Amino acid sequence: MGHTYGRRRALLKRMQRGFTMVEVIVAIGMLTLVGLAAAQFAITAVHSSYAHQQRAIAVGLAESGMEQVQESVKGKDGNTIFSTLTSGMSKSGAQEALKAATDLNVIENASDTIDLGWNDSPSATAIQAKVETNDRQGKGTTYTVYTVVGKCYRLSTQASCLSASKQGLVTSSGAVGAYKYVGEGNKSVDAASITDATKFPTGPFNTGTASSPTYSPMVRVVVLVTWPDSQHQGKTCWYSTATIFDGSNDDTLKSK
């Protein structure tokens, strides 16, 4: 009996030691899982925080770009706004900026909504179509600021501002109809001011008849900021802002 009882006690002790070991292994596994989950949460939180920071920087850059646009035309006549804003934009730079905006669907149906503008002899001191800048926190993010400037025309009976071809001012063959400036003694509109990317009509115009609708030339401006997506490799983040200026010598654009 004594030997049997001793063997049972030894067996029970071994079983207790086995259960304890299993419990330790389970506990270690649970702690590992919790630790991994916490680490993943921390990494996600850091990435999310950085993504929000990047967007905040981009918003600031876009707003700063639009403020620069607004300031550059302050006090100017409406029909000089276009030439002022395009004075620093080369053809290739303007086309690259428009492509970036259309590729990201920032400007949808660009051929229907904007006639791109540029300058044949761009100034290096004026607003540029493309500017790259790095964040000031030194985290290596490069932001690209695109500024797109173009013409569009608002029909007196409509609210939308559309391209010359979409408004029917230019035919599919490139011909421009015969138009007269409103209130300028039936002065004819130079076709080049509509078809040429470096020129702009001097004011509202129509066909010269009393019943003809009036077309008001406008300047469409889009400021787009792009930067690499920190959470999805190979993708691009963007933020944009836009405005339209009246190209008809609107007094509200002038300094008081």
Results as ranks from 00 to 15, higher is better:
M1H: 08
G2I: 10
G2V: 11
G2A: 13
G2S: 13
H3V: 11
H3M: 10
T4P: 00
Y5L: 09
G6N: 14
L12W: 13
M15F: 07
Q16H: 15
R17A: 14
V24W: 15
V26M: 15
V26G: 13
A27V: 10
M30V: 15
M30P: 00
L31E: 08
L33T: 12
L36V: 14
A38D: 13
A39M: 14
Q40R: 11
F41K: 14
I43S: 11
Y50N: 01
A51S: 15
A51N: 13
A51F: 08
H52S: 14
R55H: 07
R55L: 04
A56D: 14
A56H: 15
A56Q: 14
A58S: 08
G60T: 15
G60E: 15
L61T: 02
L61C: 04
S64P: 00
G65D: 09
M66S: 04
V69F: 03
V69T: 04
E71Y: 13
E71N: 11
K74A: 11
K74Y: 15
G75M: 06
S83Q: 14
T84F: 05
L85H: 05
T86S: 06
S87P: 10
S87C: 15
G88H: 06
M89Q: 09
M89Y: 12
G93Y: 00
A94M: 12
A94H: 02
E96R: 04
K99R: 13
T102L: 08
N105E: 06
V106I: 15
I107T: 01
E108L: 04
N109E: 07
A110Y: 00
D112W: 01
L116Q: 02
W118R: 01
N119I: 03
S121R: 00
P122I: 04
S123F: 02
S123A: 04
S123V: 04
T125N: 09
A126C: 05
V131T: 02
E132N: 02
T133I: 08
T133Y: 02
Q137S: 05
G140S: 05
T141A: 01
T141P: 01
V145D: 02
T157K: 12
A159N: 11
C161H: 00
S163P: 02
A164K: 08
S165E: 02
S165Q: 07
K166Q: 12
G168R: 11
G168I: 09
V170L: 07
V170I: 14
T171L: 08
S172V: 12
G174F: 08
A175E: 08
V176S: 02
V176R: 01
A178W: 05
Y179L: 01
Y181D: 04
G183P: 05
S188A: 12
A192V: 07
I194M: 03
T198R: 01
P204C: 12
P204T: 13
F205L: 08
N206K: 09
N206C: 05
A210T: 10
A210S: 09
S211N: 10
T214I: 07
M218I: 07
V219G: 01
R220E: 03
L224P: 03
V225N: 01
T226N: 07
W227R: 01
W227G: 03
P228S: 11
D229K: 12
S230W: 14
S230P: 09
S230V: 12
H232V: 14
Q233M: 11
K235M: 10
T241I: 13
T241D: 06
T241W: 06
A242N: 05
T243F: 03
T243G: 07
I244S: 11
D246Y: 01
D246A: 03
D250L: 05
D250E: 10
K254V: 06
K254E: 09
